[in-house]
Amino acid sequence: MIVVDLSAFLVLSAFLFSCGIACIATKRNAIGILIGVELVLNAANLNFVAAARYLPSFRLEGQIFAIMVIVMAAAEAAVALAIFLNFYHTHTTIDVESASDLQG
């Protein structure tokens, strides 16, 4: 019997999180990494809202935090894409392996 309580959501968000990590680690396309980051953020968001739902004292804070994370993620995605476009313009490739100029 699957009881849907907090731990179920926690497991689900952990799963989403690890998928996001896997996506970051396996994509050479910069946009792919960005997609992974979005997954991670969503996993965290899910965590927040689930906690808000199942912990009485966290009712409002969870949602508010989740809204802020959504806003931040959008902003970050915009900036990241601007950077990637810039990078593409100068290097003509979106491969992050080419972005290794900052080396020692």
């Binding site: 396309n29 960005l34 979005e38 806003v71 959008a74 990637f84 490739t93």
Partner: peptide, 27 residues
């Protein structure tokens, strides 16, 4: 926000930064 904003942005980015035909970007 996410689906209608961020994802559209991502798709735009994907389209604008297409890798060349001969490039293989895999791990």
């Amino acid at each position: 926000v996410y689906v209608g904003g961020t994802l559209v942005l991502v798709v735009f980015g994907v389209m604008l930064t297409e890798p060349g035909k001969t490039e293989r970007v895999t791990v």
